[in-house]
Design a protein around this nucleic acid. Sequence first.
DNA 1: CGCGCTGTTGAAACTTGTCAAAGTTTGTGG
DNA 2: CCACAAACTTTGACAAGTTTCAACAGCGCG
Lengths: 247, 247
Amino acid sequence: MPRRHSSRRIDLAQIKTACSTCSLHELCLPAGLDARDMERVDGVVKLRRRIKRGEYLYRTGTKLDALFAVRSGFLKSCVVYEDGREQVTGFHMMGEVVGLDAISQERHTCDTIALEDSELCEIPYARLEDLTRDIPSLQRHFHRMMSREIVRDQGVMLLLGSMRAEERLATFLTNLSQRFASRGYSAQEFHLRMTREEIGSYLGLTLETVSRVFSRFQEDGLIEVHSKHIRITDVARLRGLVAQQAP
Amino acid sequence: MPRRHSSRRIDLAQIKTACSTCSLHELCLPAGLDARDMERVDGVVKLRRRIKRGEYLYRTGTKLDALFAVRSGFLKSCVVYEDGREQVTGFHMMGEVVGLDAISQERHTCDTIALEDSELCEIPYARLEDLTRDIPSLQRHFHRMMSREIVRDQGVMLLLGSMRAEERLATFLTNLSQRFASRGYSAQEFHLRMTREEIGSYLGLTLETVSRVFSRFQEDGLIEVHSKHIRITDVARLRGLVAQQAP
DNA sequence: CGCGCTGTTGAAACTTGTCAAAGTTTGTGG
DNA sequence: CCACAAACTTTGACAAGTTTCAACAGCGCG
């Protein structure tokens, strides 16, 4: 925390990537902010925070200071039981905002941990709340962001509540693929940042089941697996395994 | 919809239960609104909407017009697959607000259906958004409400992802019990408004499993079951079955 | 008063979890 | 840069929990 102040001038220099010039801003911020509003947003979003793989961005129970937008890297959020069991509630990649759960109690309700070295923009929450009052399009955007998280969670409930292992994995891979694609990366080929155990936890399966289903998908020619590197070789058939929500 | 206008004077008479005098307002609205702000909220919250058991409050895909606060009754929300499978994503009782999922796309992403005759306050969303800009405490409250929904969903993920049938049912009953208690009803004894199938759908189990676990709980002296009437006879032991989240 | 929806219970089948062992990758310190 | 340890992954065999299928009972509603 003192670090941010101690080298402010240097950080400011690095920060040619203010929101106004950030390549992620259409993921992060509302479309059509005018220059003046954009400048105000820039003023609120703090200098970047870098965390190394394995480090915590925040822990359950700690006070909410800021939301974070992922600039680069990959993170997971998870809730932990008394008995040590752990449930991964989400994976986060660039352009996504984390910390929304903490607004309700002003304390974080999950741990968020970097799965690879990551960079984040820190958005002090109190200042954001003020700003949304002044910039209606930002307000709308923020509300949609929270609502989108609720919808995403509904999707996960659906997955956990009524899909079987193959359907869950197919849904997971398809979702990852789409998220990579919408960020300009390959939809067919990507690197998993999380372990089989973390995938399993997210999908309500054991790591062995995850591993077995990957193997089965590979035998069936749907994907090629080289440990964490995944290539989807039959997108259509993989999509076919995903249960569709009624329109 | 025309009904609301056709009998406005009569409705207004019934509506001595404006927010300012509503017994639920501390569940629904921020504490410490002054009289003036409360009046503005009253002006936005529309006349009550009544729906009968089995009727839809809204359907997937329909446009978001309003959020709804449950005044009385009991509802469920669910998402439906193409193939007819259905996943219940939540049950709603008095003081709770539904429709938050629809903000992200301005369309509802689930069906919400009354499980018994219910009364709801309709809160036109556009006007709410305007009002939150003017009343900071309302804004904070609204944000917390959305965040609380995200936290609740995390809890359901936990349940679906890593609990077994008995744990799920115990969690479900405990949660219902608390919600009834905080509304002034008995925590030990209540009436389930939903079928075993709906409970099962919510908990990611079949209706048979739900029925069997109820029976087992009864044999073990934890609860007494008379079809939909439940009496918790050993709260402590039931709580003991619920996996605790680490602090 | 009976028909249909809801709930209960049993037996068999199936999916997934558990335990175990071996193989592979990754990271680190010499 | 290699070697070794630790972490992660794969695979098999078996066990357990849950679902599926089926039959029947109970309740409520028309």
